[in-house]
C-alpha cells in the first residue's frame, strides 16, 4: 500500500472532509453535505465512517474498530486491516486505550473520556426520510425547525401500540435544536450520547453527509412527558461475565430453541472475566 497516501485519502480530500467536520461541530446535529469519495469498501459498509476516520487519524493514534460491539466481526476486522495497511497505527481492543474508535451499531459500555473520538457509521442520516422522501423538503424542515411530522409519527405509535415503535436509530434532539439520527445504535445506547465527554462524529458515505455532537452537548431522545423514553432490559445477566445493565446478544445454542445472553461488547465482557479470574485464587 506504499503507493497510497497515509490513510489512503489524499491530503486535499482530508482537508475537505475536516472542513465539513468543523462545520458539523459548529452546528451540533446538523447534516453537512460533503464530497464523499469512492473508497475501496462498498457503499453501505462504512465508507462514511472510514472517510471521517481517515481524515482525523494521525500516526500517534490508537485505533479500535467494532461492529455490533465486537472487535472481531468480519467487517470490523476488514476495516481495521484497512487502516493498519494504510497508516501502520497501533490498534487495540480495549476501549479505554483507544484514542479513536470507529463503530457500527453500538457505543462501548466502558464510559468514554474527554480525549477520545468516536466515529459512527451511518446508513441513512436523515431522521425525516421515512416521513418525507424529498431532500428539498427535509432541508427546509430542518432549517425552519418544522418537526411536526416527526411528532405525529410518535403520537401514532403510542396510539396504535402504546409505545414508540422505534427500537434503534431512535431520533434525538441535539443541543435543543436539530433533530438527528444517532445511527442504528439500539435505543439502549442513546443515553450515552447525552453530554458525553468525547467527540462524536457521524459519517454517511453513500448519502454524503457528516454530522457531529461536540463534547458535553445535550442529546435528548424524543418522547412525551406522559410516555417517557425507556431502554431495553433483560431478565438475566450476561452468561459469561455476570454483568447486568449492559446490552446483551441473544445466542441460540441448540435446535430446541435454547438460548443464552452474552455481552455484545466483547472487550467489556473479556475484561470483566479477566478481573474475575484474577480474583479467584
Amino acid at each position: 500500500m506504499s503507493a497510497y497516501n497515509f490513510a489512503f485519502l489524499d491530503e486535499q480530500t482530508k482537508r475537505m472532509i475536516r472542513r465539513a467536520i468543523l462545520k458539523a461541530v459548529a452546528i451540533p446535529g446538523y447534516q453537512v453535505p460533503f464530497g464523499s469519495r469512492e473508497m475501496p469498501l462498498s457503499y453501505g459498509w462504512g465508507t462514511g465512517g472510514v472517510q471521517v476516520t481517515a481524515s482525523v487519524i494521525g500516526p500517534d493514534d490508537v485505533l479500535k474498530v467494532i461492529d455490533q460491539g465486537a472487535d472481531d466481526t468480519t467487517n470490523a476486522v476488514s476495516i481495521r486491516q484497512f487502516f493498519v495497511r494504510t497508516t501502520g497505527v497501533r490498534t487495540t481492543t480495549q476501549t479505554d486505550e483507544a484514542s479513536l474508535i470507529q463503530t457500527r451499531h453500538r457505543i462501548p459500555e466502558t464510559p468514554l473520556a474527554a480525549d477520545q473520538i468516536v466515529v459512527f457509521q451511518v446508513p441513512i442520516p436523515e431522521p425525516l426520510r421515512w416521513l418525507e422522501p424529498r431532500e428539498t423538503e427535509t432541508r427546509t424542515m430542518h432549517a425552519l425547525e418544522e418537526y411536526g411530522a416527526m411528532w405525529v409519527r410518535l403520537y401514532e405509535d403510542i396510539t396504535r401500540h402504546g409505545h414508540v415503535e422505534t427500537a434503534y436509530d431512535y431520533p434525538v434532539v441535539v443541543n435543543g435544536r436539530y433533530l438527528m439520527r444517532p445511527s442504528p445504535i439500539p435505543k439502549f445506547d442513546n443515553p450515552k450520547l447525552d453530554r458525553c465527554p468525547a467527540l462524536l462524529l457521524f459519517g454517511a458515505g453513500r448519502e454524503k453527509r457528516i454530522y457531529a455532537v461536540p463534547p458535553h452537548t445535550t442529546v435528548r431522545s424524543l418522547d412525551f412527558e406522559d410516555h417517557p423514553f425507556t431502554v431495553e432490559a433483560w431478565d438475566r445477566p450476561c452468561a459469561l461475565c455476570g454483568a447486568s445493565g449492559v446490552f446483551l446478544d441473544e445466542i441460540i445454542v441448540d435446535d430446541k430453541g435454547g438460548r443464552m445472553f452474552v455481552c455484545s461488547d466483547t472487550d467489556y465482557c473479556a475484561r470483566r472475566r479477566q478481573a474475575c479470574d484474577a480474583e479467584t485464587p
Partner: peptide, 17 residues
C-alpha cells in the same frame, strides 16, 4: 387525532394525554 394534534405538537406540546 394526529391530524388535529399536529399543530400543537409542532408548537411544542409534549403531553400525549
Amino acid at each position: 387525532g394526529a391530524n388535529v394534534g399536529e399543530r400543537l405538537m409542532a408548537l411544542g406540546a409534549r403531553h400525549y394525554g
